[in-house]
Structures are given as C-alpha cells and as structure tokens.
Design a binder for these strands. Structure first.
Lengths: 133, 133
DNA sequence: TTGCGTGCAAAGGTTTTGCATGGCA
DNA sequence: TGCCATGCAAAACCTTTGCACGCAA
C-alpha cells in the first residue's frame, strides 16, 4: 500500500481534526474542495483504510461516519458506547464489562467482535436534556 | 393508520418468511415484482413501520436489513447478538448479561438503549467454518 | 365522504467504475 | 521501471418526492 500524498492528507485530517468522527460529505467539503484529493480517491481510501482497520465506520441514522482508529490501541478488547445525543464515543475499559465477552463465549458459544460492536444510548450529559435524543 | 392491502402483504411477508431479516431489494424482488405493492409504497411502509416499532432496522456493512419486531416481546430488555457468518440474530435473555445494563447506568452514567444495541461476532456454528467470516 | 395511502415516473443524492495519466517504491 | 493510486466524468445505485387517483374507515 502506497503512502501517497492524498492518503497522508486524509490521515492527517483525521489525526489533527477537532472531532473524532466525520461523514464522507464533511471530508469532501474539507479536503476535496481544497483540491487535496479527488472524490473517487476519497471513497477508495475510506474503503481501504476501513478494511485495514485504520478507520472505523459507524452508522448514524442514514449517515455514515468514519473515525481514525489508530489512536486507541486495544479497541478489540473493550466495549464501545456511543451517545445518540452528542455522538460521543466512549471506550469502556472496565473489568466487569470486559468479563462479559468471556461469559458470552463460554456460556453462549458466541465469539464477540468488540471492534464492531457498539452499544447505543445516552451519556450522562445528554440524558436529561431532551427526550427526543 | 390504515391497514391497506399493501401493508398486509408486507407484514405477512415478514411473518411467514423463512428468514428473520430482509434487505429492501430482497423485498422488492419478492413483492414488487409480483405487483403486490409499488416500490415507493414499500419504502414508505418500511419507514413508517420502523418508526412505529413494528420493524427494526439493521446495518450490515452497506446493506440495510429489516426485521419484523412484534414476534419478540421485550427486546428493549435484553441484548442482541448478530452473527457475521450466517446473519442470525440471537436474543440474549440471560440475567448475568442483563445486569450489565444496570452496571453501565450506575457505574458509568450511560443509559443503554438495548433495542438499538447489537453485538456482532460469530455464533457457535460459524466459528470454525471460515476465518474470513 | 374524507383524507390517508398508492403508483408511476422523475428527481435527488451518494457511491462506484472505466480509463488514461501520475507518482510511489 | 513496474504497478498501484489518482482524477475526471459518466454510470450505477438506492431512496425520496410530486401529483393524480384509489381505497380504508
């Protein structure tokens, strides 16, 4: 896999961005408009980087969001919580919770893939705010 | 909400189907091709029935899958496991696992929405089969 | 009878693809 | 130098929408 200029632009966009997650059209507005890379290259890079685990893909209603994954090392070892209110992703490093994966494996015969498994709900801050969250 | 012929056709398709989950294009092939209902009606019904909780929507890679929800009563009270190999959805009614929601609420301040939260992995049958699953 | 639901076809938006060119290793 | 990656534009794809008509309540 070549480290092209366009790849680096995209990777750095994620690394230095203010948010953790971006939709494809946000990236198009930010990078393609600047001429940093073409739209088709963007989509091809997003697919490849997601396949290779460098990015992670989320579904937020109808939108598809991407997040740079290399920043958190052991994402396959813990659960993830995603807030429907503010979109925040919480990495749940907690022994009691982590034990669940083993319980599900031994008692239910199901091998979890924690990288792909996201639990949805409302975080502390968003809980009181709005029932429509 | 009217119980139209088209609505009944769609509802019965889910109720009597061999699988639990169908993508929109599978339903189009099965029902729209027969003239049971038009494509736009299908999409409108899928949206409405999902909003009203009669169907549940899943994201499988890029595909969107729908499942008839009335068959399982208390889906907001237990976790769901979805096998990446065969697509099977497992309703995980297990006290030890259910306690996790309360732990996450009390210890982590996060209110889970179990209806939306799906854990992915491989079921017992698919585990040995193929590493590419 | 009322007005929600339907069907068609067209519009809409996003993602993918073909092909010639460019640039990394 | 060889081959993967890129960019453009067109195509493909799925979903939504406008509007007149039909049908459930």
């Amino acid at each position: 896999m070549y480290k092209t200029m366009q790849y680096k632009a995209l990777r750095d966009f994620f690394r230095t961005g203010q948010k953790e997650q971006y939709s494809s059209d946000e990236i198009i507005d930010a990078l393609c408009a600047d001429g940093a890379l073409g739209k088709s290259t963007l989509y091809r890079q997003l697919s490849r980087m997601t396949e290779q685990g460098e990015l992670r893909r989320f579904h937020e209603g109808k939108r598809v969001l991407y997040q740079y994954a290399h920043q958190h090392g052991n994402c396959h070892e813990h659960f993830h919580l995603k807030c429907r209110g503010c979109g925040k992703l919480i990495h749940l490093t907690c022994d009691q919770v982590s034990g669940l994966a083993e319980h599900i494996a031994s008692a239910h015969g199901f091998t979890l893939d924690l990288r792909e498994s996201v639990l949805y709900g409302l975080c502390e801050g968003c809980r009181g705010k709005d029932a429509t969250c």
